[in-house]
C-alpha cells in the first residue's frame, strides 16, 4: 500500500511537532533563560565555588567510573561470549539489573549495605573511610547504574567477530595476552567506545542514586545534577539552576560530538 502524499505530510508534521514539543522547546527555554541576561551573568553563575566544585566532582566521578567499567565490562563480556560460565542466565540478568532497578532503589540499598548498621557499616568505624555521604558512595552508586553499558556494547561485537581470528593468532604463536591486545581489543574498540560514551553520559547525568548517598554540601559533595537540584529547590535560585543545567547539557553535547566524530572516522575507514 502506498501512503498518499497528504498522509505522509501529516505524519511528518506530527513527528516534527512531537520532537519540537518534547525536546526542542525545553532546551530552547533553558538556553534562553540562561543566556537571556547575557554571557557575563552566566559565567559568574557557573564560576561560583560551589559550581566549580560540582563540575570537578562530576568529572572526578566520571574519571573513576570509566576505567572501572571498562575493565569490568570487557572482562565480563569476554567471559560471557567466550568462556564456559556457570549460571550464564543469572549472570546476564545481574548485568542487566541496573537497567531494571530504579536508581533511587540503588541508593537506598547502598545505604542499607554501607551505612551505619549495614553489613559493611563497620568499615567506617574501623578505617575511617566514609562510604555513605562520601565520595566512595557516589562512585559506587555511579558504577552500579552504568555497569551494563560496556558489557552490552562489547558482548555482541565479540559474538559477531567470532573466534577464528583469535584462533588464527594462537596458531601463529600469540599467547592469550598477545591475542587480547593485538586482535580482540582492536576488534571490539568501537563497541567499547560506544560503551564508554554511554557510561560518561549516564555518569554525568545520574541523580537518583547519587542524591541518596551524598551528604549534599555545596562546594564539597555536590555533583552537577545535585547542584541544579539544590539551587532550584533549596536556594530558589531558578537562574542558577538553569545555568548549571546548561553546563551539564554542554558536557553531554561534547560527549555526543565526540561520539559522532568517532563514528564518522569509523565509517570513512
Amino acid at each position: 500500500m502506498r501512503t498518499s502524499r497528504r498522509a505522509t505530510l501529516a505524519l511528518r508534521t506530527l513527528a516534527l511537532v512531537y520532537l519540537v514539543g518534547l525536546l526542542a522547546v525545553p532546551i530552547v527555554v533553558i538556553l534562553w533563560r540562561t543566556f537571556g541576561e547575557g554571557l557575563g551573568p552566566f559565567l559568574a553563575s557557573v564560576r561560583t565555588p560551589a559550581a566549580v566544585s560540582a563540575l570537578n566532582l562530576s568529572l572526578l566521578i566520571v574519571a573513576i567510573t570509566v576505567p572501572l567499567n571498562v575493565v569490568f565490562g570487557v572482562v565480563t563480556a569476554i567471559a560471557l561470549a567466550r568462556w564456559r560460565v556457570p549460571f550464564r542466565g543469572v549472570v546476564q540478568a545481574v548485568v542487566d539489573l541496573p537497567f531494571a532497578v530504579s536508581p533511587i532503589v540503588v541508593g537506598v540499598s547502598l545505604i542499607m549495605l554501607w551505612g551505619v548498621g549495614g553489613w559493611f557499616g563497620g568499615l567506617e568505624q574501623s578505617t575511617g573511610i566514609k562510604v555513605i555521604f562520601g565520595l566512595p558512595g557516589m562512585v559506587i552508586a555511579t558504577v552500579f547504574v552504568t555497569l551494563p553499558f560496556v558489557v552490552r556494547e562489547v558482548e555482541p561485537v565479540l559474538h559477531e567477530i567470532g573466534t577464528e581470528q583469535e584462533q588464527a593468532a594462537a596458531t601463529l604463536g600469540a599467547s592469550g595476552w598477545q591475542t587480547f591486545w593485538r586482535i580482540t581489543l582492536p576488534a571490539i574498540r568501537w563497541g567499547l567506545t560506544y560503551g564508554v560514551v554511554l557510561t560518561v553520559a549516564r555518569a554525568l547525568g545520574e541523580f537518583g542514586a547519587v542524591i541518596m548517598v551524598s551528604s549534599g554540601f555545596p562546594g564539597v559533595s555536590q555533583t552537577l545534577t545535585l547542584l541544579v537540584h539544590s539551587r532550584y529547590i533549596d536556594d530558589h535560585n531558578t537562574y542558577g539552576a538553569y545555568t548549571a543545567a546548561t553546563l551539564l547539557m554542554g558536557l553531554a553535547l561534547l560527549t555526543l560530538l565526540g561520539m559522532t566524530l568517532l563514528d564518522r572516522k569509523r565509517t570513512h575507514r
Partner: peptide, 15 residues
C-alpha cells in the same frame, strides 16, 4: 602456539 603449525581457515580469519 607450540606445535609448529600453520593453519588456514575456510573463511580466511583475516585480521
Amino acid at each position: 602456539q607450540h606445535r609448529g603449525i600453520g593453519f588456514v581457515f575456510q573463511h580466511y580469519a583475516a585480521f
